[in-house]
């Protein structure tokens, strides 16, 4: 690039670079501290003694380690049931999303009559939606309100993911492969299942993470569409436990849970540590999925930046 004009300098350049590296190192140390410390804090608080947390003594290492918070979480029936619900919604919803997206993306990567219209049909929904209320009324009329079906099929196709996948298929799987397979008598179905799916490992992994995380973390759908407690996804229950202001007495869901166990002071203490444990337990699945699949990300996200 011709914009690179370098002036000759008499000062030793290695010395300047060393200074740069030191400053850069210090900056990253600070950034990592800022990013990881809150997470570390949740983790150590979840295994500490409630008294120490409330007293502000837990800030570096766990104090008086105990697993009473985790024990309480695993005994919390409402939480555990919603946890299983969320696993079900996530696994079923993600599987459906991935297969539907792969099928449509493959079709969109090939030539056919009406391709432009179909692409526009999908793209339009990225820019204009009916809005919350019309969607709610329509789902109500379709009889989907308060059903587990809705939790699985709503937001099933993300147009963004669909476009990423289409780009991946059309750029990474050569067309000649289809022509060769067609000579051998393959049609679109056999080609899709025998050739496209086996060659799309990377993008399927990316889709699993994007769809899976979105579903696991989704709070609003459950809030709007689910009425019965036993169908609630975990985020709704988690919110009741951790993300509300402490109120006096029975309004705090946690205090209720420890109702008969002990005195009010004791309940308050247990509730405090259990909140941290609940956050940890609720995040383990997504963090695990992320750590396991991270090597695919940069590729997947970069694909999205390609012009469709």
């Amino acid at each position: 690039m011709n914009a690179v004009k370098i002036k000759e300098r008499s000062i030793s350049r290695t010395k300047k670079d060393v200074t740069f590296d030191i400053v850069n190192g210090i900056i990253w140390f600070a950034v990592l501290l800022a990013v990881l410390y809150p997470l570390w804090l949740v983790l150590i608080a979840s295994v500490s003694d409630a008294e120490a947390i409330i007293g502000g003594k837990v800030f570096l290492w766990p104090v008086d380690p105990s697993f009473s918070g985790y024990r309480a979480v695993f005994q919390h029936q409402e939480f555990m049931r919603s946890f299983l619900n969320s696993i079900f919604y996530t696994v079923a919803g993600t599987s459906l999303s991935v297969i539907v997206t792969m099928m449509a993306a493959y079709a969109l990567s090939r030539k056919f009559a009406g391709k432009k219209a179909v692409t526009l049909y999908f793209l339009f929904t990225m820019f204009f939606t009916g809005g919350l209320i019309p969607q709610f009324l329509m789902n109500m009329q379709l009889g989907l309100y308060n059903t587990m079906t809705l939790m699985i099929i709503i937001n099933c196709v993300s147009v963004w993911n669909l476009m990423i996948t289409r780009t991946f298929i059309s750029t990474s799987i050569p067309n000649e492969l289809y022509e060769a397979a067609a000579i051998d008598g393959a049609n679109h179905f056999t080609y899709f299942f025998r050739v496209i799916l086996p060659l799309s490992g990377t993008i399927i992994a990316v889709l699993c993470v994007f769809y899976g995380v979105a579903r696991w973390n989704d709070y609003f759908t459950g809030l709007v569409y689910i009425r019965d407690d036993w169908k609630m996804p975990m985020q709704t229950i988690l919110r009741r436990l951790v993300a509300s202001l402490e109120r006096s007495g029975s309004a705090d869901a946690m205090l209720d849970f420890f109702g008969d166990a002990a005195s009010r002071a004791e309940r308050l203490r247990l509730a405090e540590v259990t909140k941290y444990s609940a956050i940890v337990v609720s995040s383990i699945p997504v963090v695990g999925l992320y750590i396991g699949m991270q090597r695919f990300f940069v590729k997947g996200v970069t694909l999205g930046s390609l012009k469709g």
Partner: peptide
Amino acid sequence: LLLPAIALVFIFCYLPMYG
């Protein structure tokens, strides 16, 4: 192959537009 995606988008995106 396109049909399931088209149907799901229709139910959750286009029906609400009618609404």
